[in-house]
Simulated scan of single mutants.
Amino acid sequence: MMNTIQRMLFVHSYLFSLRHEVEQMEFMGTSAEKRDLFTPSLKDVATELNNRLTLYFKTVDVDVVECPDLHQPPYCFAARGLCGQPMLVEVGGPTYLIPKVDRSKVYDFRDIQRVLNINPCYFMGAGAGPFPYTEVNCEGIYNVMIDGSVVKQRSKISKINVNNGTSEQQDLPNTETRFALLANLFVSQGLPGEVLKIHVKERIGCHDFIASIRNCLKDAYSTAVVGLGGVFLMKSGTFRQHVMPDFATDEIKSEEQLNGWLRFYNMSAPLVAVGTLVTGDMDLDLRLQHFHSSSDHNEAGHYHNDITPETVEYLAYFNIANSVVRIDKPKDSHDMGRD
């Protein structure tokens, strides 16, 4: 673990470098910008989280381990691991969904791979689903590996059954590589290697699992922006999640209207969630956390929090991102739809 002086020097060096390390990129005629993130060691982050997460959970165990084989259950992902050029990628944003949907905002993972110039390129994370394919607005739980011309798709969507109001999960085929409106993605080469293992039980704080981690990292590294991405398993408990219905016919102009439009459900463990978190927005209008989950029992959606703090158990495998790439940042922004 770094001592206080070492951390101050490391943070100061990182903050100074931000004045120079900005890479402008081009993506399908829209803006794209790449910036470095602060990258403490896995060991240092593990030590900080071990010490600080005890404010939020009764049982805490954080370590640096070899990533489990994510091909295997309960994950069944498109790649084995979370290593190899790890980065965060944010595309679009809530402004393209609310107050009024912009149906022109449809993206393709293959185009993003070309811009990032990574091969193989493994995407995992949370976003809006490919409505041109599903013919309805939906949640996207993304997990797709692109290696040359070969696509291995393990993504799912969650949508509302209009007949009975329940949510239902659906797999996406290898031929469907689009998503719409917004996405928060952890990108790597999907290689094995060392990652953070975060195992907690019995929530004693008021914040959700991801916000608790963000708060700890913010306290540890101050203004230096740290980003993580990967997967967490909701091993036990019940969880409040939402699923978007079809696009609203009227403009959504307030958080109250937004929550009235969304459909909220209590979903049961086990659930497997993928997404990203970051401790600051770096003037890039970044979404600070965004995770979507899926299951083997047809429940899937956007993670908010557990509603059974006494019995909840989370197990996460995260890697530290080296950089963040911001693609098609909206010109105008708002704070709605970021929970």
Rank of each mutant, 00 (worst) to 15 (best):
I157M: 12
S158C: 14
I160M: 08
I160D: 04
N161V: 04
N163I: 00
N163V: 00
N164R: 06
G165I: 10
G165R: 08
T166A: 08
T166Q: 05
T166F: 08
E168F: 12
E168Y: 13
D171I: 04
P173R: 07
P173F: 14
P173G: 12
F179S: 13
A180S: 15
L181F: 15
A183V: 10
N184Y: 15
V187G: 06
V187A: 10
S188K: 11
L191W: 12
L191N: 11
G193V: 14
E194L: 10
V195R: 02
V195I: 12
L196D: 15
K197E: 09
K197Y: 10
I198M: 01
I198H: 03
H199R: 02
V200P: 01
V200E: 05
K201G: 06
K201T: 11
R203I: 14
R203Q: 15
I204F: 03
G205Y: 14
H207M: 01
D208L: 00
F209T: 02
F209V: 00
A211E: 06
I213F: 05
R214G: 04
D219T: 10
A220L: 01
T223N: 12
A224S: 04
A224R: 00
V226D: 03
V226I: 12
L228W: 07
G230A: 03
V231I: 09
F232P: 00
F232C: 01
L233V: 10
M234A: 14
M234N: 09
S236K: 09
G237N: 08
T238A: 10
R240E: 05
Q241K: 05
